[in-house]
């Protein structure tokens, strides 16, 4: 077993443990952990089974097999980032709807006499 295999195995296992621990402690939602766990497992399998790595590298015409590990990791990272971009866009839309509804609701409450007029303290927060 080469040193790079050991490094990759340790890295993948540490990543796996970290992600599972984050989920267990409620820092990471299960649905956002799936891609991380999948990438850790893929790296782990390819690092353990050197013959599998070499075979795939042969198929793809990658002359230096260990660099395939980088490729796999890179593709997973791209996938994870794309996933996050989609999630952020969805949050953006949900955020927008919430802020719009709050504005309309506040106005409705004010018109119903249930809310005093804006006092000046109740302004936008530029810290965000």
């Amino acid at each position: 077993m080469y040193l790079y295999q050991i490094l990759a195995i340790v890295g993948a296992v540490v990543l796996f443990i970290f992600v599972v621990d984050f989920v267990r402690r409620g820092l990471l939602k299960e649905k956002y952990s799936v891609l991380w766990l999948a990438s850790a497992l893929a790296i782990l399998v390819l690092a353990l089974k050197k013959r599998l790595l070499d075979t795939i590298a042969g198929y793809l015409g990658v002359s230096y097999a260990p660099s395939l590990l980088f490729l796999v990791a890179f593709l997973f990272i791209m996938l994870i980032i794309l996933h996050f971009s989609v999630v952020i866009s969805i949050f953006h839309d949900k955020n927008k709807v919430l802020i719009q509804e709050i504005a309309l609701l506040k106005n409705a409450l004010k018109e119903a006499g249930l809310l005093p007029p804006v006092s000046g303290k109740d302004k936008g927060d530029k810290s965000t």
Binding site: I99, Q100, I102, A103, K106, V118, G124, D125
Partner: peptide
């Protein structure tokens, strides 16, 4: 006038 205030800049 009616004033509709966004909590944050959107």
């Amino acid at each position: 006038v009616t004033v509709l205030s966004h909590l944050l800049n959107m």
